[in-house]
């Protein structure tokens, strides 16, 4: 359940219905729905550009191709939360 942190300041738990992250630097806790968590994981692999994230998600999610605006919104939120 507990994933290795992407950097030394984040503790992450991922579940099938969402995830939780703790930023050890700021003390902030972030609770993510499954879609936003998937976007986060994809953005870590391919970079935080909406098209790249869409293409990566489309490998496992047939509906991802039609969700570019939702991906953009999720990326905006993740960036604002300093998770990306």
């Amino acid at each position: 359940m507990r994933a290795p942190p992407p950097d030394h300041s984040l503790i992450e738990f991922a579940w099938d219905d969402g995830g939780a992250l703790y930023d050890c630097s700021s003390g902030d806790t972030h609770l993510l729905d499954p879609f936003t968590l998937a976007v986060l994981h994809a953005a870590r692999q391919c970079g935080p550009t909406p098209e790249a994230v869409r293409d990566l998600l489309a490998r496992t999610d047939d509906t991802a191709a039609e969700q570019l605006s939702r991906i953009e919104s999720a990326l905006d939120q993740l960036t604002a939360a300093r998770l990306l």
Binding site: R2, I11, W15, G18, Y22, G27, L31, L32
Partner: peptide
């Protein structure tokens, strides 16, 4: 689970005091 986590954090008296320790215990 994320909703349950939020509820437990709301009900914790010392979440901010314990920080990462509290987060890990609740998660």
């Amino acid at each position: 689970r994320p909703e349950a986590m939020a509820m437990l954090i709301d009900n914790a008296f010392n979440y901010d005091v314990l920080g990462a320790t509290a987060f890990t215990a609740l998660a």
